[in-house]
Computed example of a mutant assay.
Amino acid sequence: MLEQGDTAPDFTLPRDGGDELTLSALQPAKVVLYFYPRDDTPGCTTEALEFTALGAEFADAGAQVVGVSKDTVAKHDKFITKHDLGVALVSDAEGDVCERYGVWVEKNMYGKISMGIERATFLIGSDGKIIRVWRKVKAKGHAQEVLEALRAQ
């Protein structure tokens, strides 16, 4: 389980728009890396819209926001277009990055147990070290909480 002070596992994944995104290539910017279950669902849409609304403030604080799910790039593109999102979305279709960040977990919904992505956020410093981790995130208001933590650095 990754914790504060650990080195964030590097990755290169396909992103919206057809390019690739490499985590370490974003340095020296700080990175808000948020994992979410699925494009265009209520909680995931709320979270993405709130990160988008605060995008300029994250940029002013020296951070880039990147969302990760197992959805395809095509689904990410539709999600971004439908909601006019301003965050980068990467596709972890194979689930390797989710596994390395410890967010691929057993979930229990209405008594049915299945595997899925735990909504979680990692604030990564310009040195590639994890500054803070949020697990079992509630989408509403989360982006503001992350921004306040970023500004406190």
Results as ranks from 00 to 15, higher is better:
142 H>K: 12
57 E>G: 09
98 C>G: 14
32 V>K: 04
107 K>T: 07
63 A>T: 02
15 R>Y: 01
25 A>V: 03
99 E>C: 10
111 G>P: 02
72 T>K: 11
111 G>C: 11
117 I>T: 02
82 K>P: 12
110 Y>M: 11
8 A>F: 00
10 D>I: 05
64 Q>R: 15
55 G>M: 03
84 D>A: 15
24 S>V: 05
66 V>I: 14
131 I>H: 12
103 V>P: 07
93 A>M: 13
142 H>Y: 07
38 R>G: 03
44 C>I: 11
134 W>L: 01
83 H>V: 11
33 L>C: 07
26 L>D: 05
102 G>N: 05
41 T>E: 03
108 N>D: 14
124 I>K: 07
21 L>E: 03
2 L>F: 01
101 Y>G: 06
58 F>V: 02
144 Q>M: 13
119 R>P: 00
55 G>C: 01
131 I>D: 14
32 V>T: 00
141 G>Y: 00
89 L>A: 12
15 R>H: 04
153 Q>D: 11
7 T>E: 11
125 G>I: 04
109 M>Y: 13
6 D>G: 02
53 A>H: 08
113 I>M: 14
147 L>E: 10
120 A>H: 06
64 Q>F: 06
6 D>I: 00
64 Q>W: 03
1 M>P: 14
21 L>A: 01
151 R>D: 10
126 S>W: 01
53 A>Y: 02
51 F>L: 07
13 L>I: 11
123 L>N: 11
90 V>D: 01
42 P>M: 10
146 V>R: 03
79 F>S: 11
14 P>W: 04
133 V>A: 04
51 F>I: 06
128 G>I: 04
75 K>D: 15
149 A>I: 03
123 L>T: 03
22 T>G: 06
122 F>R: 05
149 A>C: 13
10 D>H: 02
81 T>K: 15
8 A>M: 03
112 K>H: 09
85 L>T: 09
36 Y>G: 01
4 Q>T: 13
65 V>A: 05
46 T>I: 13
135 R>C: 01
27 Q>T: 09
134 W>C: 01
63 A>C: 10
144 Q>L: 12
37 P>T: 00
58 F>P: 11
30 K>N: 09
31 V>G: 07
127 D>E: 11
92 D>W: 07
93 A>H: 13
41 T>C: 02
88 A>V: 15
98 C>Q: 13
73 V>H: 07
95 G>V: 09
139 A>S: 10
50 E>D: 13
100 R>I: 00
2 L>T: 00
28 P>A: 08
6 D>S: 01
4 Q>I: 07
110 Y>Q: 04
27 Q>M: 13
